[in-house]
Amino acid sequence: MAVGAVLGAAALLFLLLDILPGAGGTDRPAWVRFLGLFTGDTGAPNTLGERLAVTLPLALLALVIAGAVGTGLGLAAGRYRGMVDGLVRALSGVLALLPPFWLGMLLALLFAALLKLLPASGFVPWSNLPGALASLLLPALALGLPYAGQLALRIRRDLGSVAEDDVQRLRAQGVAASAARWKLGLAGALPELPQAMARIFGALLIGAALVESVFFLPGLGRQILGAAEQHDLGLLRGGLLLLIMVAACGMLLLALLRVLVDPALRAEWRR
C-alpha cells in the first residue's frame, strides 16, 4: 500500500503539473522528467535535501511531543477517574482544537519575546546541535501539542471501551474491578497506538508548512508553498513527492510497530 501510494502520487503529480504552462524542463523526454521526481531532479538547481533536513527533524520532534504528552494525558485520564479525568479531558479538548500556527505565535510571544528563553525565528545549522534543537523546540511544540490532545482523547476513549463481560471474567479470577478495567483497557488501547502515531506523523509533515512560515524556518514545507506562489511547477512537484515519500515511509514503519505490541499479530506473524 505504501509503494502504491507513492507511485500513484507520482503519476498524479506528473500528469497534473507537467502539462501546465511553466512546468519547466519540457525539452527533456517525459520519462526522464518522471524519473526525475524520484531523484530530486526538478530541471533546475534545488535545495530539497537541505530543506528536508529541517522539516523531518521538526516533524519527528513534534511526534515525540505528541506521543509523550498525549499518551501521558490519556493514561492519566483512564487511570484516575473523577476530577483528574475531567480536567485531563478538558485540557485535551482545548489542545485538540488549537490551530498550530496560532499556538506557535502564542508560544513565540511567551517564550521568545517575554521570557527570552528560546529563539522566535530562524534556524541554527546542525553543526551547532544545541542551537538547532532550540530553533525547533517552539515550532515542534506548536505542531505537536494539538495532536497530543487528539491522541489523549483517543486513548481515554479506548481505555473506557471495555466489555463488562470481560471485567466480570477477571473479577471471577480474583482481580479487583478497577484493576480489571485498567488491564483490559490497556490491552485494547496499546495495540492501536502505533497506527494512531502513523496517521499523526503524516499530518505533522503536512502541517509543518504553516508552522515553518510562522517561525521562518528554511524547511521543505515552506519551500513548497514558495514554489506554488512563484509558479515553479518543477520544484513544486519534486517537493510534494519527496514529502509524500517521507510520509509514506514513516507511516509504514510506525504501523509495523504494531507487530511488537499486539500479541495477536505477533502470533499470526510467527505462523
Rank of each mutant, 00 (worst) to 15 (best):
L240C: 08
L129N: 06
D41A: 10
Q168P: 04
A203R: 08
Q173W: 06
A196Y: 13
M105D: 07
V88N: 00
L184N: 14
R79I: 01
A76T: 00
L225A: 11
D166A: 13
L151M: 12
T26R: 13
A59G: 06
R156V: 00
G43C: 06
G238K: 15
G49R: 15
L145G: 01
W102S: 13
L129K: 10
G24I: 04
G40Q: 13
A30V: 15
L106H: 11
A10G: 06
L110I: 14
A96D: 14
V3M: 08
A76W: 09
G67F: 08
R199S: 14
H231F: 13
R237D: 02
E229I: 05
G86Y: 05
L106F: 14
L240S: 15
P45H: 12
G122C: 05
L243Y: 01
A68S: 12
A112L: 11
V54Q: 04
I65M: 00
G24M: 03
T47V: 06
A198D: 10
G149W: 14
L235W: 09
Y80E: 00
G43H: 06
V246T: 11
Y80N: 05
L61D: 04
M83I: 05
G239E: 10
K183G: 01
A134M: 12
D85I: 01
L103Q: 04
D41H: 10
E268F: 00
W182L: 15
G8D: 09
L110E: 00
R181L: 08
